[in-house]
Design a protein around this nucleic acid. Structure first.
Length: 229
DNA sequence: TAGGCCATCTGGTCCT
DNA sequence: AGGACCAGATGGCCTA
């Protein structure tokens, strides 16, 4: 099932007339600005590419349309309680902090989504998908670099590196070729997959035994992204 | 309508 | 003491 594509409005709900908190801290801004664009100067295409979904974290987190009022738990247990005002005030402040904390977390997640290639490029990965994909993606890039290093240490870039790079970059130049981009071949790579404590609570990150080619999981309805089955 | 995803509230725990 | 972090509970939204 697809999640709703628009993240609901952060900071759109505050307790009892409190001014809407931004939900975006300086940390978010720095995180976003420091987020590397993988397309720049790397092995991936440096030109604007469907591979790279750059996200303006602040803008994204700040968007959110009309305030819908607080979601979730309906009237809080403490809401409407008159007597213990101090306690209630503390609780409300804690709620506000917690809300902002989660918004920051989501902003970071959005920034992460921003550097992950998805298809279509406006598809939005769920939180768990983002984490799993990022895990796999980093590993794939790392392995590519490792292969490149190996070959550089030898007699210059060999065909394997070229192939590996091609696998990574394949299809990134055109939407039509995108699926190829998501079918990296890691036949010769030592995948860290299926390690204990993997990000995946299930089984999404398992290297093919014997180093088979990385395969896409069942094509997600909302997005296509590399994942190890 | 069921199930997935998400935001929010809440109380507990740990840290500064 | 107050804030950060965490996990459970709850209910809204959305899609199949």
């Amino acid at each position: 099932m697809s999640p709703k594509t628009a993240s609901s409005s952060p900071a759109s709900t505050t307790s009892e007339g409190e001014p809407p908190s931004s939900g975006i801290s300086d940390d978010d801004a720095s995180f976003a600005s420091s987020s590397p664009s993988l397309g720049a100067g790397g092995s991936l295409p440096s030109s604007p590419s469907p591979c790279l979904l750059l996200v303006e974290v602040g803008a994204r987190a700040a968007r959110g349309g009309p305030a819908k009022g607080r979601r979730g738990r309906g009237p809080g247990k403490g809401e409407g309680l008159g007597p213990n005002k101090a306690k209630r005030s503390r609780r409300m402040k804690a709620n506000d902090r917690e809300r902002n904390r989660m918004h920051n977390l989501n902003s970071a997640l959005d920034a992460l989504r921003g550097v992950l290639p998805t298809f279509p490029d406006d598809a939005k990965l769920t939180k768990i998908e983002t984490l799993r994909f990022a895990h796999n993606y980093i590993w794939a890039l790392t392995e590519t670099l490792r292969l490149a290093d190996q070959n550089l240490a030898g007699a210059g870039p060999g065909p394997e590196v070229g192939a590996a790079f091609q696998q990574l970059a394949a299809g990134c130049d055109s939407l039509a070729a995108w699926p190829a981009c998501c079918q990296w071949d890691a036949a010769s790579l030592d995948s860290p997959g299926s390690q204990e404590g993997s990000l995946s609570p299930t089984d999404s990150f398992q290297a093919p035994p014997g180093g088979g080619p990385l395969r896409l999981r069942r094509p997600p309805e909302r997005a296509v992204f590399p994942d190890f089955v």
